[in-house]
């Protein structure tokens, strides 16, 4: 049984047809990249899988269950979407890493947050840093571990390394590779050659449809 399956999915925003009859499946443990020109519906596909929007036509299945029948709030804790230019909340890094705990009504585990920071080459001191003092690369790394503190089954990456400096990019690549090795399925949108090479499958999209 596929982890995620899209069946004849179409999505329209206003008068604009963004996706038309898109069908594909993602198996557990896959590392899939959606490629294609801008405006081909790649990000929309990720948002549909993340349950942030719903298709106008067609169905999406998660482990054989139609997304329409699932509690999407719980589902999104398993299927995590990372934005291209993430926003950090409130004041400090700690505020951001505490949020996934608060969402699950759990006490903040500071040690776990410090370990997570280390994984993206940021010291434990970063917890108390103000988000306004972070560089773009550091913000993206904090945002990424915010998504990964509670390990999701499926990680959706929407051009997360676009605009990052080389050092941050390498750190993010290493983290993604590690997370995938540990069993998280990954679906990404990227134009980065290194990320394209790392993925196991490519799916080319054009004009709102899947070609291959």
């Amino acid at each position: 049984m596929a982890l995620i399956e899209l069946k004849q999915v179409s999505y329209r925003a206003g008068d604009q047809e963004i996706l038309q009859d898109v069908s594909f499946a993602v198996e557990e443990g896959d590392y899939l990249t959606l490629t294609g020109p801008s405006g081909s519906g790649k990000s929309t596909t990720l948002k549909l899988i993340a349950g942030l929007i719903s298709p106008n036509k067609g169905e999406i299945f998660y482990k054989g269950q139609n997304l329409d029948s699932l509690d999407l709030v719980q589902y999104r804790r398993q299927v995590s979407y990372c934005f291209q230019q993430p926003t950090l909340f409130d004041e400090t890094v700690k505020d951001n890493l505490a949020l996934p705990f608060a969402i699950r009504k759990q006490d903040f585990a500071e040690k776990r947050a410090q370990e997570a920071l280390k994984q993206v080459d940021l010291s434990a001191d970063y917890l108390d840093k103000k988000i306004t003092t972070l560089s773009g690369g550091e913000k993206q790394r904090v945002a990424l571990i915010r998504n990964l503190l509670f390990r999701p089954e499926l990680l959706l990456l929407d051009e997360v390394t676009t605009g990052l400096d080389e050092e941050s990019k390498q750190i993010v690549h290493q983290l993604i590779a590690r997370v995938h090795q540990e069993g998280t399925t990954i679906v990404q949108v990227t134009h980065d050659q290194e990320e394209l090479a790392a993925s196991k499958q490519l799916l080319h999209m054009e004009k709102g449809g899947v070609l291959k």
Binding site: F83, T87, P100
Partner: peptide
Amino acid sequence: RQQVLEKIALGADVKT
């Protein structure tokens, strides 16, 4: 809007 979307994507309920 972006912040709300990101919190929702992290699994927050609409109130949070």
